[in-house]
Amino acid sequence: MTTTVTTSPTVVLQGVSRWFGQKVAVSEISAEFGAGVTGLLGPNGAGKTTLLRVLTGLIRPSEGAVSVFGSSPRSDPSVYSRMALVPEDENVYGFLSAAEFVIHNARLQKLADPAGAAQRVLEMVDLTDVADRKLAGFSKGMRQRAKVAAALVHDPEIVILDEPLNGTDPVQRAHLTRIFVDMGRQGRTVIVSSHVLHEVERMADRVIAMVDGRLAASGTVPALRSAMSDIPLQIRIDCNHPRRLAAALVEREWVGGINVEETSLHIRSLDADQLGRALPALAQKLDIRVTRVDPEDESLESVFRYLVEGR
């Protein structure tokens, strides 16, 4: 599958594959990335990190080619003055303070005023109060923000973020999400990987979904959502009269099957939206008290597997 962007692409992957011995981590991915935020979505082990490492030149593709601003990052390190990676690993130079770490990155970017640039991005990620504290004593969320600051210190045009919200609390999460969205609006190429759909949904204009190293789906978030709404879902409903509710539901055409237990029923629904609309009315009409409604298999992995295998 190939995915393209409408604006001129800054990053182009052509038939990129990467395998480690017998294991294929990334298989024949062709994609283009341009201005705006693109979410790279997939369950753990889907190959997102490997793809981002290939894209940034940290590892070689076994096959295919990567082009960033028309150059290969592995043979032309000058492209790193225009791009940045926030790696997934939380390891940083623990013996440096946050300020030293960001200034160090600014020096390696050969900036004229490393301290001034560091101050700007430390303010952006809200770390100025703890800038002189050693990174070794930072929480995971604070380290994430320090890594984001280090990556943004040279004002890159391409920003690649591998699970950047891992370990952050809700306030930090909202803050970082705002920063990434703003960068996309400024016309930068922002690529954010995540295994959490709603996280990506808040940031990305466009989503590329990966499963088992392959590109499973791509498009806008509403388009992907729409594709996912056709997926049969297993839903659990806890109520005080499961048999009565099952009898009322079984005739509906969007119900694929029902298992009844003592205090719950498990419905295989072909249209979760229809079920969501019908259930309150039915419960009221039959005088049934519904205490819980939960999807049982709406994990990202099952959704992606459906997208891959159902195509």
Partner: peptide
């Protein structure tokens, strides 16, 4: 080994 290589290698510096 400590996965800090991106902070060193992904920079506009000749190898």
């Amino acid at each position: 080994r400590s996965h800090t290589m991106p902070f060193l290698a992904l920079k506009p510096i000749p190898r």
